[in-house]
Amino acid sequence: MLITCPYCGPRDVSEFAYQGDGNRKRPDPASTDPETWNAYVYDRLNPAGAHNEIWQHAGGCRAHLAVVRDTLTHEVSSVRFAREHGAPTHGRRKSGAKA
């Protein structure tokens, strides 16, 4: 499986770290609705076919990528920088935030 990094070009999948389902949207941190958080943490679309997902080119330029990949054929149809795509909204620290 090759993923074409928009910065580095086509690279082997072993250079990339899978960061999971790209459809998930982190709820507003101020939200206290348990159902919303439960859905965010545990529920997945898990489609057979085109899947929005986040990969990081961990063994390369380290960019986070928004990838559309077919889970039936492993064919990658689209790769964009995640920051342009507006994802990932989970697990990303705001710039300037304390560690």
């Binding site: 859905a39 529920d43 997945r44 679309l45 898990n46 489609p47 057979a48």
Partner: peptide, 19 residues
């Protein structure tokens, strides 16, 4: 492994499962 596909036929779109 087909849980997601079959449950989607029943209108359950999301499950705590990844195939």
């Amino acid at each position: 492994g087909s849980t997601g596909r079959v449950m989607q036929l029943a209108g359950v779109d999301k499950m705590p499962i990844e195939s």
